[in-house]
């Protein structure tokens, strides 16, 4: 849906381009993460999609059309946009904030009202409580949710999110990420998501694009990024705990083996990650533990051997 073709952006004052000859095809209905150190050109890349920034050269396409051929305001109204500072309008209620794009699109008021309530529900904010609040009455996490709801308001097929969970504490951040995953599973939007937190990228991304000084260094599935970092920069960036990170991308369900006995000293749910299973194994001192389904019945087992085997299997 979104593609960059040899896109370069050079700011007037800078000696090197902020984005340098970027070519990338953002897959539909997936979360594509842009990640890289500060100043690597992530925001610049993202903002060229809705033309908040115009490229110096190259073409950005949306659904096949050059974005420069689209009316800039129509283009933007058709793309959800959520940013780190949240940028809620302080003089408007939560209701008005969430309803802004439908309002710009001239939806009838009753339709806007209904939509806003649905969205607040979706992001986990009780509509009756939050509808009439003003931004300065919200906590950081609540404001982020409103920001996400606002981006989703007109049901855009494309969502641009620039560090949308940047300004909250780690716990709230975990919750927001979990909810985002749930929402995305239901809505299947094409999402471009900027972060510089590798854990967030691994958790949320279907694809990860790693950028450095305006260039794309690697564009791959999360597992591949961890297993086969393109160069030292990427492996540094992914960090020293690559092995553990790789374990956190695999689910127990994929490696568990069926066993005759149901008698294990401990067990993990099958939705747990391999990393969690390993932690449990180390805690209990057993070499193998049980795996349970959603209702708690033991359906198999997972052991140290499975963990080793996971590493030997190639990632594709």
């Amino acid at each position: 849906m979104i593609s960059f073709e040899h896109v370069t952006k050079r700011y007037e004052v800078a000696e090197r381009p902020a984005v340098d000859d970027l070519t990338i095809d953002v897959p539909d209905a997936m979360v594509t993460i842009l990640i890289g150190p500060s100043g690597s050109g992530k925001s610049t890349t993202m903002r060229m999609v809705n033309r908040l920034i115009e490229p110096t050269s190259g073409v950005v396409r949306l659904g096949g059309a050059d974005v420069r051929d689209l009316d800039v305001e129509d283009l933007r109204r058709g793309i959800g946009y959520a940013i780190q500072g949240v940028g809620l309008f302080p003089h408007w209620t939560v209701h008005e904030n969430v309803g802004v794009v439908p309002w710009l699109l001239k939806w009838p008021q009753p339709k806007i009202d209904a939509r806003v309530r649905d969205l607040l529900d979706l992001v986990g904010l009780e509509p009756d409580v939050y509808d009439g609040k003003y931004p300065d009455e919200l906590s950081g996490g609540e404001a982020q949710r409103v920001g996400v709801a606002r981006a989703l308001a007109a049901d855009p097929p494309v969502l641009l999110m620039d560090e949308p969970f940047g300004a909250v504490d780690p716990l709230t951040r975990d919750r927001l990420q979990a909810e985002f995953t749930k929402i995305q599973q239901a809505l299947r939007k094409t999402v471009v998501f900027v972060t510089h937190d590798i854990d967030e990228a691994l958790k949320l991304g279907d694809r990860i694009a790693i950028m450095r000084e305006g260039r794309l260094v690697q564009f791959d599935k999360p597992e591949c990024v961890i297993a086969y970092p393109a160069d030292d920069f990427v492996s540094d960036f992914v960090g020293s705990e690559r092995a553990l990170k790789r374990l956190s991308l695999a689910r127990v369900a994929g490696v568990a083996s069926e066993t005759a006995t149901n008698d294990w000293a401990a067990s993990v749910p099958r939705s747990a990650t391999l990393r969690e299973a390993l932690a449990r194994i180390l805690e209990t001192g057993e070499r193998e533990i049980g795996v349970s389904d959603e209702s708690g019945n033991i359906i198999g087992s997972v052991g140290l051997e499975d963990v080793f085997a996971h590493f030997e299997r190639p990632v594709e």
Partner: peptide, 23 residues
Amino acid sequence: VSPAAKDAGRGMGMSRAQLMRRI
């Protein structure tokens, strides 16, 4: 006016005049 609010307004497709008048 916070830069984030202005950026959000523009990014959601407000025209310059709308941004000035409404935000």
